[in-house]
């Protein structure tokens, strides 16, 4: 197997807050191989935002990295100098945000913004503009020669997200991080953006780390899936394996709750009883045990390790270890 683009090992991150230390990520390991789309799925409070800020090394000031490494193309992001990081961001790793209206500068034209991000490259402004126009055409902006002179507010939400994707891909990054890129869009726009990402990945060499709470989008787009709950990776595996043979009780419940997966219509929708644990005051044992319908002997007292279910499929659950 080729060396992974991104290799996160045993990452633990806490936040210092007035209430005490909040353990936002605990012992998280995941890899993004070259040319793969890896999806991170989890509900609010699962730590997916903290995880991607850590990868970009854009953590809040009160964050403390307790343990672990984030190897990006072989070097640890966490120990890199700020100069090296800046060089990396935008060039080798790029990000598409949830809300394109806030991630694009509202008072600068698209052309200027897209020429600006190529500042490290040699070449005339005219060449850079041509590259930007070509990229806009690839992401499906009609009439890009004219439209590139426009400002963000002159585009619809879907078009703005296409522009952010074009800007992210302009430098041909090895890793594209997409943080809920379709949450602000309508369902038909969402389908178009997902289709676009799938199309683009055939053209561009590079991997995508796709963060979403929407199981449908994950199934639609990703090759591998990482399921997170309350700051831990509870299960990961190849997408078919995970959707068809989920082993962790949380993953199973999450799949059961999705109304799109319930074939016969029902007025009584399933839910997951209980609520997220307090990350400032963690209980011992398995993180999901208090809400788990299958909890037994060791779950309340002992923290489970990561056990292999099948090749490339692991789950953090004693039921897997004990068969």
């Amino acid at each position: 197997m080729a060396a992974p683009i991104l290799d996160i090992r045993n990452l633990s991150i806490s936040f210092a807050t007035p209430r005490g230390s909040v353990d936002a990520l605990r012992n998280v390991s995941l890899t993004v191989p070259p040319d793969r789309i890896v999806g991170i799925v989890g509900e609010s409070g699962c730590g997916k935002t903290t995880l991607i800020s850590a990868v970009m090394h854009l953590l809040a000031h009160n964050a403390i990295v307790r343990a672990g490494t984030i190897q990006f193309e072989g070097t640890d992001v966490l120990t890199m100098t700020e100069d090296r990081l800046r060089d990396l961001r935008g060039r080798r790793m790029a990000m598409v945000f949830q809300d394109p209206m806030t991630s694009l500068n509202p008072v600068v034209s698209i052309a200027t913004q897209m020429i600006d991000i190529q500042y490290r490259d040699a070449g005339s402004t005219q060449d850079k503009l041509q590259r930007a126009v070509a990229m806009l055409r690839k992401v499906g902006i009609p009439d890009p020669e004219q439209r590139i002179q426009g400002y963000p507010h002159q585009f619809s939400g879907g078009m703005r997200q296409r522009i952010s994707i074009a800007m992210a891909l302009l430098m041909n990054p090895a890793l594209l991080i997409a943080d809920e890129p379709t949450t602000a869009l309508d369902v038909t726009m969402e389908a178009q953006i997902i289709h676009l990402l799938r199309q683009l990945r055939r053209e561009f060499k590079g991997s995508i780390l796709f963060v979403s709470h929407n199981l449908g989008l994950i199934a639609e787009l990703c090759d591998e899936v990482v399921v997170m709950y309350a700051g831990e990776v509870v299960e990961q595996g190849e997408v078919r394996e995970l959707f068809h043979h989920a082993r962790h009780p949380y993953t199973r419940l999450l799949l059961e709750c999705d109304p799109a997966r319930i074939a016969a219509t029902t007025r009584r929708l399933p839910t997951i009883e209980g609520s997220l644990p307090d990350l400032a005051n963690l209980p011992g044992g398995c993180i999901f045990a208090p809400r788990c319908p299958q909890a037994y002997g060791p779950c309340a007292s002992e923290a489970p390790g990561t056990y292999a279910v099948a090749s490339g499929h692991t789950a953090r659950c004693f039921r897997v270890r004990d068969g």
Binding site: S156, G158, M159, D186, V187, T188, M189, E190, A191, Q192, I194, H195, L196, N214, L215, G216, L217, I218, A219, E220, V239, R240, F243, L255, D258, A260, R261
Partner: peptide, 25 residues
């Protein structure tokens, strides 16, 4: 029909090759 088809199916075996409804409102 287009609206229903745009809803992503949480099943990797039911991936759509077509984007469904094109264009914008």
């Amino acid at each position: 029909l287009g609206l229903l088809g745009a809803v992503p199916q949480p099943d990797p075996d039911k991936r759509r090759e077509e984007p469904g409804l094109m264009g914008e409102v």
